[in-house]
Design a protein around this nucleic acid. Sequence first.
DNA 1: CCGATTGCTGTTATGAAATAACATAACGCA
DNA 2: TGCGTTATGTTATTTCATAACAGCAATCGG
Lengths: 158, 158
Amino acid sequence: MKTSCAHDGEAAGLNKGELATALADAEARCVTAEERLTGPRRRVLELLLASGTPVKAYDLIAAFGTEGEAAKPPTVYRALEFLERLGFAHRLESLNAYVACRRSDEGHAAAFLICDCCGATEEFEPEVASAVQRAAGARDYVVERVTLEAHGRCPACR
Amino acid sequence: MKTSCAHDGEAAGLNKGELATALADAEARCVTAEERLTGPRRRVLELLLASGTPVKAYDLIAAFGTEGEAAKPPTVYRALEFLERLGFAHRLESLNAYVACRRSDEGHAAAFLICDCCGATEEFEPEVASAVQRAAGARDYVVERVTLEAHGRCPACR
DNA sequence: CCGATTGCTGTTATGAAATAACATAACGCA
DNA sequence: TGCGTTATGTTATTTCATAACAGCAATCGG
């Protein structure tokens, strides 16, 4: 799946200032939603934001501690569950990985372009929704959640 | 995810005659493609077809032997890889499960409606493709493979 | 017919991803 | 302060998937 290629390393993560802003935003949105951005949750979000690309759960687990100690799996998985619920992160089913999301609407539908070469992802708005709804309607289904992941190559990797 | 509901058990798998026909079809397509539908491959396809709904890999492993003995994981995973390659089966990323496909075109794009209640799935043609291509084009991506899985409720479960 | 190549299978072992279950701590509030 | 709720810590286990290597069988050129 992930073919090796020269463009790794230019990760696109947030720098220190952007990170602080993004975390403050998240904090604010939690207050509004009457939810708590606790330590572990904040830490996992920070790691995701700093990466800018999808991160495996066990990489988060390994990177969790600031002195290099690992977290226990449930710590990170619970944080991820929270972050997903509030729309701060998404799970990429086809990669078994998680990615931060900076869109401001909780619980939005998500669709992704995923570069199989460098691992970069771009989230886009699934206008696709209407086509899915049409297919669903024709079969009498009610759709509650859509996973859309398009694999290919990003501009830099071609 | 899978909420319990009364409609289980009405699985929609193929009966004996249909199964024989479907396997013969698969056999024929393999000949055309110059591929071999060997024992393990045929057996796994048979199990998928008989089920009619998505099946977990380890359920296939457990059901593999005709006298109840389990297969070794690689046996089944290799067969699944082959079946996917030829378009006889698809992997459902959001379920970690596999489902038979009776469409006749190798390597086609796949999209699914998945009932979270009874586990039924319907494959549909992703006309969606055009919308994805538009989003991809705008971002200069080249798309090679699309995963689309819509979760919801089937007619029977509402 | 022989030997080499290639593709598939069998087997053992291990790696990677996720969750169950239960104990403890922190928070919000009567 | 004491109670219910929500979040965390911890141990263990389950679920999902692949690496690595040995053997076998079909195919093809000589």
